[in-house]
């Protein structure tokens, strides 16, 4: 198992370089010049060049990438052009808030999704199933920013149950978590339901009934355990999606976090900061997928064996 984990982690290295190159190029291909937002109107071209040299913007793209990469590997993401602080520090400052939102939304997606899926599978073909299924359909089609606005309108503005925006206390987390996680709930519920129904048709389930094992035990101890294998790999892939959702949701709710940081940096063409944020987010997506893979392998004794 540990060599399997090692192999999966080693496989990250090429992915990391591809991702970092993409992030780097993407930023340099979008039009706009960060020096513009830094210079006051009417500054001299000499000062302009001086600034460009200071941030290395006068060198070739390739050189810029090598220099940047060298620093990234020592966790030095450079200095924010606009805010004048190290990118690493800015990320570290905003990360906890994003992790709280992302983590809670992830937990919400998993638990609510699995519960809804188990219920829909248990009552397959009845009205309970069809209402859960239509809920799922609705949940998976609403974009999270739109859902966020809708939730704000209903629960914060009309009902006044929770604050409209900000990040003070747990109550301010409720709406962002729902907005971020609902799409995940829908997906997890759908995968759980489908795989529970499919596994419920396998022969070993008939044998469990022939042993006199109770239905609830068959469902939760046997079928669900199998059904969770695909659910977990979906959840691993979902980590990235949830982070993406968190970005827009953070902006809508005016919460501090990587998302808000990234959007601001983008507007200001703050290259180093944008690169740092994007790289962080991409790595989180890759790590999420790997964690999903490993968890999936750990759950299944056959894979555990094969991956020794």
């Amino acid at each position: 198992m540990s060599s399997f984990i090692l192999r999966r982690l080693l496989a990250v290295i090429p992915t990391f370089f591809v991702v970092s190159l993409t992030v780097f190029l993407l930023i340099h291909l979008v039009p706009g010049d960060p020096i513009d937002s830094l210079m006051r109107a009417g500054s001299s071209p000499a000062l302009r060049e001086q600034m460009a040299a200071k941030y290395g913007l006068d060198r070739s793209l390739f050189e810029q990438y090598i220099i940047w990469m060298g620093k990234v590997l020592t966790l030095d993401f450079g200095t924010s052009i606009i805010q004048g602080r190290p990118v690493a520090a800015l990320i570290a400052q905003n990360l906890p808030s994003s992790l709280t939102l992302g983590g809670t939304a992830f937990l919400f997606s998993s638990l609510a999704g699995i519960a809804a899926g188990v219920l829909a599978a248990k009552y397959y073909g009845t009205r309970i199933d069809s209402s859960i299924t239509s809920g799922i359909l609705l949940g998976s089609t609403i974009p999270s920013f739109w859902l966020a606005l809708l939730l704000i309108l209903v629960f914060a503005v009309w009902l006044g149950w929770v604050p409209v925006s900000g990040a003070r206390g747990w109550s301010s987390l409720v709406l962002p978590v729902i907005a971020t996680g609902l799409g995940g709930v829908a997906l997890v519920a759908r995968v759980t339901k489908v795989s529970m129904i499919e596994i419920g048709r396998q022969d070993f389930v008939t044998l469990l009934r022939a042993k006199g094992v109770s239905e609830s035990r068959i469902r939760l101890q046997h079928i669900l355990r199998h059904a969770l294998v695909p659910v977990i790999s979906i959840l691993g892939l979902r980590i990235g999606w949830i982070l993406g959702g968190a970005i827009t949701v953070e902006v809508v709710f005016a919460r501090p976090g990587l998302g808000s940081l990234l959007i601001r940096a983008l507007n200001q063409r703050d290259y180093p900061l944008v690169q740092g944020c994007l790289l962080m987010l991409s790595m989180a997506v890759i790590l999420g997928t790997i964690i999903g893979d490993i968890a999936q392998a750990a759950m299944d004794p056959r894979q555990r064996e094969a991956s020794k």
């Binding site: 396998q202 022969d203 070993f204 008939t206 044998l207 469990l208 009934r209 022939a210 042993k211 006199g212 094992v213 046997h222 355990r225 199998h226 759950m299 299944d300 004794p301 056959r302």
Partner: peptide, 21 residues
């Protein structure tokens, strides 16, 4: 009664067992 008074043995042992237990 099932598994207690009446026991059943199925044809395909590979498919009859839960692979994860």
């Amino acid at each position: 009664l099932r598994g207690n008074e009446i026991g059943m043995v199925f044809q395909d042992p590979a498919a009859s067992l839960n692979p994860m237990m």
